[in-house]
Amino acid sequence: MELVVPDLAYLDAYADALRRGWSPDNIRLEMTAREELAKIAADPVAFVASLDDREAKGGPITLPDGSKAARLPGFRRWIWDGTFCGSIGLRWQPGTALLPSHVLGHIGYAVVPWKRGRGYATQALALMLEEARREGLPYVELTADPDNEASQKVIRANGGVLVERFEAPAYGKEELRFRVALD
C-alpha cells in the first residue's frame, strides 16, 4: 500500500469508486460523490489539479448546512495497492496549527468499503503524518464519530490521544477530537 499523488493514470479507478457509492467526504457522502463525478466529466485535468491546492486557490467549500466557508491550503493523496483503495487529505492554516471551527481536523480519510479491514487507513495515516511534519505542524487533530470505533482505532494506533467530545455546530452532531503530536 502506498499514497499516490492524484493523476490521470489513476482517475478511472477513482471515478469507479465514486460510481460504486464511495465518497471521500464522510459527511456529505452522496452529494460529494455526485459533485466530483460532474467535475471529472467536465474537465478531468482540472479536477486532478484541484486536489493539490497548497495556496487555497480553489474557492470556498460547502458545509453540510449549505453555507460556504473559506478553503484552507491542503492536498489529497490516493491510497493505492495496485487499485484504488481510498483517499486521505491534509489541510492547515498557514502559520498556526489551529483550525477554524468549521474544520473538524487537519486530516480526513476514507477507505472504500471493499478494502476495509486490511490496515490501509492506519498505514495511510502514518504516511500522512510524515507529510504534516514536513509542513511544519507541531501536531494534527482528527475527529471521529463516537460510534466509529474503527476510525478511533486507526487514530490511536498512530499516537492519537482523545482531547475532547464536542458538538460540531456546522455539522449538527457530536464528535470526538484526537490530537497526534508530531515533534
Rank of each mutant, 00 (worst) to 15 (best):
2 E>D: 13
9 A>R: 14
14 Y>L: 09
21 G>D: 06
22 W>G: 04
23 S>T: 13
29 L>P: 00
29 L>F: 04
34 R>A: 15
34 R>I: 09
34 R>D: 12
36 E>Y: 10
38 A>C: 05
44 P>I: 01
46 A>S: 13
46 A>D: 11
51 L>K: 14
56 A>G: 02
61 I>Y: 08
72 L>E: 03
73 P>I: 08
73 P>L: 07
73 P>W: 07
74 G>K: 03
75 F>C: 10
78 W>P: 02
78 W>F: 08
79 I>T: 10
79 I>F: 03
80 W>M: 06
81 D>H: 04
83 T>C: 02
85 C>R: 11
87 S>V: 13
88 I>L: 02
95 G>F: 10
95 G>Q: 06
96 T>E: 03
97 A>P: 08
101 S>Y: 07
102 H>M: 00
104 L>W: 05
104 L>K: 12
105 G>T: 04
106 H>N: 13
106 H>E: 11
112 V>K: 07
112 V>Y: 02
113 P>R: 05
119 G>R: 06
120 Y>P: 02
139 Y>T: 00
143 T>K: 03
143 T>V: 09
145 D>C: 00
148 N>I: 03
149 E>G: 13
153 K>G: 11
164 E>D: 13
165 R>N: 10
165 R>D: 09
166 F>G: 00
168 A>F: 02
172 G>C: 04
174 E>W: 11
176 L>V: 04
179 R>M: 08
